[in-house]
Design a binder for these strands. Structure first.
Lengths: 220, 220
DNA sequence: ACCTGAACACCGTTCAAGT
DNA sequence: ACCTGAACACCGTTCAAGT
């Protein structure tokens, strides 16, 4: 029984041969850990344990932890659905951001990583380029296109970041806590806390806000 | 010379008398630390050192670190500018969110804390109530009001969270890094990275996006 | 070339003890 | 009642050493 016993990892860790450790295997192990237990579990030490290797062995393949996280995020960016192609740039933009939202909503750990300051790397740039092209086709000049791009990303990222708090399970506890010490003078807040949310409401609210935003950003 | 020497703290730390440590002084010290050095510096151990006290002494006044951070955020919420009073609910809403943005933009550490998952406590609720009231006056029913509230907060929070990345100093290094390994096929991304940003552009872009969003959310 | 061992400078938090 | 001391179970990362 080594120190990594009981982790339930799929990777054999008994005895790694020389050269068996690669950058890809490290990034992959980080992703599996993140999917199973969230970004808090993604530590150099745990990834190393999962691979049956010393923490320091990872530094052969990346210069620090941030590089690992960015590599993990880049993998997610590469798996983004293709940008929608269509005649109406406005509808394409809506679909592009819905696709982006849905994709990231399925990887809460990626949102967690972005949230704590890590950023997408190069792999996300083609998607950005495509969005900027759609904004151009919609009639925005360079400066307005950039401003619209940021507005759309702010909205999308803010939404994704707030998702955990709107999940029913987290919502009950949190709202109960907030409202426990009295709600005199806060009738609307109280009613908002009591409004039922169904699965999928997050996505629907995102789409509604997105349409509102696009309506105000695009000409016509 | 105690172990806290050289930190440049204003609080005398030579010999604390019994009862000199209070919840307020702990929260205050946390805020000063956060303002000077960011949230990374706000550790139980450093706050304690700053107060000339053992880390464990803080646990007399709060049950864990999160309680300290929430208390710090609540202080910020209490210092929010009053909600604008006026005839036009739409303009009041715009001013309310600009006020919220400007207030939080002045406390980057608070955004950092929200970003890493900590949440506002009760002190923020009166502000939320005021916004919901304005949305009601603007003609939205309960459900639409809630949806609009979330859309506005997502946009605002996403903006605040992205602010550090748009600061000129961070922007240069990051864009240079992203674009260093070639920008073939990414002309728009490249030009966006080169577009100059002036101080205050963040605020102006926020206002523009906010108006677009409000235009789409409110009736009329 | 690739990996290990030991160490450094940190964390939040527990438990038992001092005054 | 209020605070301390020592310890536990962690971090990321460095440097020197092994094979």
């Amino acid at each position: 029984m080594s120190s990594t016993a009981g982790l339930g990892n799929e990777v054999p860790y008994r005895r790694r041969r020389r050269g068996a450790l690669s950058r890809a295997s490290v990034v992959d192990t980080g992703r599996r850990l993140a999917e199973r237990e969230g970004m808090d579990a993604v530590t150099i030490r745990r990834v190393a344990a999962e691979l049956g290797v010393t923490p320091m062995a990872l530094y052969r393949h990346m210069s620090d932890k941030q590089e690992l996280v960015v590599a993990m995020l880049d993998d997610v960016a590469r798996e983004l659905p293709p940008l929608p192609a269509g005649e109406d740039p406005r509808e394409c933009l809506a679909l592009a951001f819905v696709g982006l939202r849905d994709h990231l909503a399925l990887s809460p750990w990626a949102v967690e990583a972005l949230r704590s300051g890590d950023l997408f790397g190069r792999a996300a740039l083609p998607y950005v380029e495509g969005v900027l092209e759609l904004l151009e086709r919609a009639g925005l000049d360079e400066r307005r296109g950039m401003e619209a791009y940021w507005a759309l990303w702010w909205f999308t990222f803010g939404h994704l970041t707030s998702l955990p708090a709107t999940l029913p399970e987290n919502r009950r506890g949190r709202m109960a806590l907030l409202l426990s010490s009295g709600t005199e003078g806060l009738p609307r807040v109280r009613r908002m806390g009591e409004l039922p949310l169904r699965p999928g409401d997050g996505g629907r609210m995102f789409r509604a806000g997105l349409d509102a935003l696009l309506g105000g950003l695009l000409p016509g």
